[in-house]
Amino acid sequence: MASINKAVLDLKRLDLLANNDSVIHRLDARAKVLVTCVFILCIVSYDRYELAALFPFFIFPAVLIALADLPALFIARKIALLCPFVLVVGIFNPVFDREVLVYLGPLGISGGWISFASIMVRSVLTVGAAFILVGVTGFTAVCQALERLGMPQVFAVQLLFLYRYIFVLSEEGGRASRARELRSCGRKGLGIRSFSSMIGHLLLRTWQRAERIHMAMLARGFTGQFHAYRQSSFGKAELLFVLGWSALFVFLRINNVSRYLGTLITGLFT
């Protein structure tokens, strides 16, 4: 529970980042969503043993973090809590894929380790891209951008509701959880019985809240149609942003810049 509590706090912080004002923040959210998609697609399109060619892609998060003035350490810390599933699955690669592909001196590096490293780098890049997208755009704007890119309105609107009430309900859940922990000395009382009745109560209260919200909507003239208000526009800056980054990603995808640079350097060394 502590971890989720922390996750909610992190969520609030990430959400507040979107209130900054910067060149990147001011761009239309659609542009940022599109560029992030191209970025992720380029990353995952690499072969599993590709490692070096992934590194140049760090230019994207680095530039965005800088231009948008995001707290790099905070983002890094969040990325460090990578999805454990990736780690668990990835670590099997060295076990099953032992063919040695590279020797660094006497040290043979198997394909498994290379692909494992590749998986971790991919993870950092893709997860980082998602965080940065939220940090420079904000969830609401991402949602509205997706809607304008074709996501159904019903889905978009309930997503906004979900996001809004995470803050209210997680506080409620946290309070209930604390109350139970305080009254259950040690581990007793933390079993499934008290759990289910607590969750049940929380659910009923949530249900009633949904009914009140609906009532509040009706009271303000809601008739089933959601009206969008904000209309930011997709202008020249956005077009430039999308085309510029996409071109760079495609260039990096086709040309292994790391290798060129590496051969250049190692060539000079000898």
Binding site: T140, L160, F161, Y163, R164, Y165, V168, R209, R212, I213, M215, A216, M217, A219
Partner: peptide
């Protein structure tokens, strides 16, 4: 109508 719990009434982003 102003509801008792403003969290019920403020549901927009």
């Amino acid at each position: 109508m102003v509801f008792q719990d403003p969290d019920d009434q403020l549901f927009m982003p």
